[in-house]
């Protein structure tokens, strides 16, 4: 862990070498979700609600998923850009060093400009939560933290899966955006507005529903029956990450037998 922060520190120094570019990027990163959020706002202004969900409620959904995504993009960017790492043969370098591959890939990139996106998402979260009347309990606060942190696990898992593909082919990786960007886009609304099969896929296969829709029902007191299940739903994110790590190890083994 200490080593990871060393990696981060050296990357921070690197990025500070290009200050103008850094600020431009931060600003741009801040604007991206803002444009999407503005779109959301205008749609609610026209339609009022979406299947019984009000604007601030959907905004919480939106903010949780965007915060989780922003954090993941900050620190797991190394996996996101892994195809270039393999393409340039830099992964060989990782293999001749006496440390785990995951830690080294995580440490290879850290984009501070993404903090702009994080800041913006947190602002939306704050705004949305304050315009709702929620009776806060310690359990609800824990749930909110679980939602975001487990969201990070899910996105990291997907990034790792996508990176693992690079060991076989660097073509057609675009399709992975269905899971990352697509998942983010989709889970910014409560899942029950979609067709059943979509909602099921994003609850049981890639558990985006478990980190915002289900626990959000608990926070908003919309649950029927046992609330604990709803509250603990985000832990599905941890369960999701485990097989991803396994697949990564298979990928590394494949790379070491083909060298491609």
């Amino acid at each position: 862990m200490r080593l990871y922060w060393k990696y981060v520190w050296i990357l921070f120094k690197s990025q500070m070498q290009y200050r103008a570019s850094f600020w431009l990027l931060t600003l741009g990163q801040c604007l991206t979700p803002l444009a999407v959020f503005a779109g959301l706002y205008f749609l609610f202004e026209r339609f009022g609600q979406i299947r019984g969900w009000s604007f601030p409620e959907v905004a919480v959904c939106f903010a949780v998923i965007h915060t989780a995504f922003a954090i993941t993009e900050c620190f797991a960017r190394g996996f996101d850009l892994f195809s270039t790492m393999v393409g340039q043969g830099e992964f060989d370098r990782v293999l001749v060093r006496p440390r785990g591959t995951i830690l080294q890939v995580l440490g290879s990139k850290f984009e501070f400009a993404r903090a702009g996106r994080l800041l913006q998402s947190l602002l939306v979260l704050f705004f949305a939560l304050s315009s709702l009347t929620i009776e806060w309990t310690p359990l609800k606060t824990v749930t909110l933290i679980l939602m975001i942190s487990c969201g990070v696990f899910i996105f990291t898992g997907i990034f790792i899966l996508a990176a693992t593909f690079c060991f076989w082919t660097i073509q057609g990786l675009e399709v992975v955006h269905i899971l990352t960007d697509g998942g983010k886009e989709m889970a910014q609304y409560p899942l029950n507005i979609y067709q059943k099969w979509v909602a099921r896929f994003f609850t049981f296969v890639i558990p985006f529903g478990c980190i915002n829709y289900l626990p959000l029902m608990y926070i908003l007191d919309k649950t029927e029956g046992n609330g604990i299940l709803y509250m603990l739903a985000p832990t599905a994110g941890i369960i999701f990450l485990l097989p991803c790590l396994l697949v990564w190890n298979i990928g590394v083994r494949h790379y070491r037998s083909t060298g491609s």
Binding site: Y18, A20, S21, L24, L25, L27, G28, Q29, L31, T32
Partner: peptide
């Protein structure tokens, strides 16, 4: 002017 393609494009 910006010498930062990603920055320009993002904006």
């Amino acid at each position: 002017a910006t010498l930062s393609p990603s920055g320009s494009f993002l904006m």
